[in-house]
């Protein structure tokens, strides 16, 4: 049981703050993960789940002693359940200054279709 507990502390993940928006052709997700660079990001899409992982790069050196802390050292994990159809092959991702910007293009069948009356 003790083993279980230590494990859970070490594997603790923070859920990052995120925002979503929608344009005509795509959904956009912005994930705020300070301390995570381009190399620390993993994105996977399976079924209806979009999983985003972020590993911190600039950890605090062992020689630093903390006076006061408000941030956390743990890595980030965000799992989003998608209730919209997206075009998986065209997912685009860009990261800048600790913010990951994901563009999820709408699948063609989920775009509104114009039906002409003959």
């Amino acid at each position: 049981m003790i083993d279980n507990r230590t494990q859970s502390v070490r594997n603790e993940k923070a859920r990052p703050h995120f925002e979503t928006s929608e344009t005509k052709d795509a959904y956009e997700v912005r994930v705020y993960m300070p301390g995570v660079g381009k190399d620390g990001i993993s994105i996977s899409h399976e079924g209806d789940e979009l999983a985003i992982g972020g590993t911190r790069k600039n950890l605090i050196p062992a020689s630093w002693r903390a006076f006061s802390r408000e941030s956390r050292d743990c890595d980030y994990e965000l799992k989003l359940a998608l209730n919209v159809r997206i075009d998986e092959s065209k997912i685009a991702a860009k990261t800048e200054n600790g913010v990951l910007r994901l563009t999820l293009p709408k699948a063609s069948e989920s775009k509104p279709r114009q039906i002409s009356i003959e």
Binding site: P34, W64, R65, F67, S68, E70, S71
Partner: peptide, 22 residues
């Protein structure tokens, strides 16, 4: 803006989490 304060023998360090700015 979460802020941390640290020190070592030579310096004091302040760290702020400010994602998404220039």
């Amino acid at each position: 803006v979460p802020a941390d304060l640290y020190e070592d023998d030579a310096n004091v360090y302040a760290r702020f989490e400010l994602p998404g700015y220039k």
